[in-house]
Amino acid sequence: MTSPLQQKIKITGPSVVTANRTIDGVVVYRSADQRWATDLAEAAIVRDAPTARALLAEAAADDVGAVGAYIAPVLIAADGTVLPGNLREQIRRDGVSITLPSVR
């Protein structure tokens, strides 16, 4: 496995660090106060590569709490709401884009 810190860090806009919680795989975001939050609104926002790298390093150090930390883009709406920056991250935040068979 490539360490997350070996990833090339390229940032084109506001970003967050996200991962999956170890115990149940739930999507989590690294908060400014060094916790894993399930709400994107609580994620620490980074805007340049050095800050992103530092946040990723800090997050990845918690190997027990969450798995596979990486940097993901976000969009900041006019009212300040933090939104997923691409389809993949949108699906991670919102769940599958289809109706689950069991709730049909």
Partner: peptide, 16 residues
């Protein structure tokens, strides 16, 4: 990771 994979456990977008 290799140990869980040998038991069919992946980590996907939202969950294991």
């Amino acid at each position: 990771k290799p140990l869980r994979l040998m038991n069919g456990v992946y980590l996907q977008l939202h969950a294991y």
